[in-house]
Amino acid sequence: MFVRAVYATGDPALLDTAVRTLNSEGRDLLEERPGYRGAGIFVDRDVGKLLTVSWWETEQARHHSDEVMRERREALLEPFAGTVSVARYEAAVSHRTEHPRPGSRLRAARLEFDPRDADPVVDAFRATVVPRAESLPGLCRISLLLDREHGRAVAGTVFRDRAALAASRAALAAVRHEASAEARVDVVGLEEFEVVYADVRLD
């Protein structure tokens, strides 16, 4: 599958307005598009960060939806968004152990690597990160979103609640250290979000 991620920052006091609009009008727009497989809305209410991720059956389906969403995105994110960026990825790994619910927590690690090493990065993630993460209490989903052309990726782990996310920090720090050395990956960002909505049809 293929993914479009929209990352917005703004005034935390205005965040809930954007979330309500995305959770109603935004979701309706997406569900009308051919090839749509689901979406997630993730927030950091303290800082004022909003991450939305939509999943598509094919790269073409994502591309066709880009035109509609590009025209509507500004209105959907008003008045919250002061900055908006859009990234596109291949869903190289996506594994779910239980369905995330509102109040679950997402940890997202931003990665950079030599584009020539894209396949070894995926292999290392499957061989090292997935089995180690699966053993952690409260894991709901683990994924690797890959931009092969530019040598960028996002590794995401979703946990059942705030306590499970906190309890996983030390173990996943060790996994990141091991996997990044093995695959020659730089970890350039680490963020945690509350899950507002997450529904992706993986099969």
Rank of each mutant, 00 (worst) to 15 (best):
D119P: 07
P12Q: 11
R27E: 15
A153S: 13
L146H: 01
V68H: 13
L29C: 03
E149K: 12
F113I: 09
D117S: 00
E74N: 06
T128N: 13
W56L: 05
V129D: 12
L165V: 00
E67I: 05
R73F: 11
G40S: 10
W55C: 06
V196L: 05
A108G: 08
S135A: 15
G138L: 13
R4N: 03
A81L: 14
A13Q: 12
V188E: 03
G40Q: 07
E149I: 08
T21W: 12
G103Q: 08
A91D: 05
G138F: 08
A183F: 01
G40D: 08
Q60A: 12
I142L: 14
K49V: 02
L146Y: 07
R101D: 13
Y7G: 00
R160D: 15
L50Y: 06
A163F: 03
W56Q: 05
Q60K: 11
T128I: 14
S168G: 05
R4G: 00
T17H: 11
G103E: 05
A8V: 03
A5V: 06
V3M: 05
C140G: 07
R160M: 13
D28V: 13
R162M: 03
A109N: 13
A164I: 02
E134C: 00
S85I: 10
E57I: 00
D11E: 01
S24A: 10
A153D: 11
G35R: 12
M69R: 13
R37H: 07
R160I: 14
L190Y: 10
D119A: 15
D66G: 02
E98V: 02
A170P: 01
I41L: 06
E178T: 04
L190C: 09
H177A: 07
R184A: 04
A108Y: 07
L111W: 04
S135C: 04
W55R: 06
D11C: 00
L139I: 10
F42I: 01
R184D: 05
V175Y: 08
R148A: 02
E67V: 01
D119L: 15
A155G: 02
A179K: 02
R107F: 10
R126C: 11
P102K: 09
R141C: 13
P120I: 02
S24P: 10
H64N: 12
G40T: 02
E57G: 07
A61S: 15
R37P: 02
D114H: 12
G10K: 04
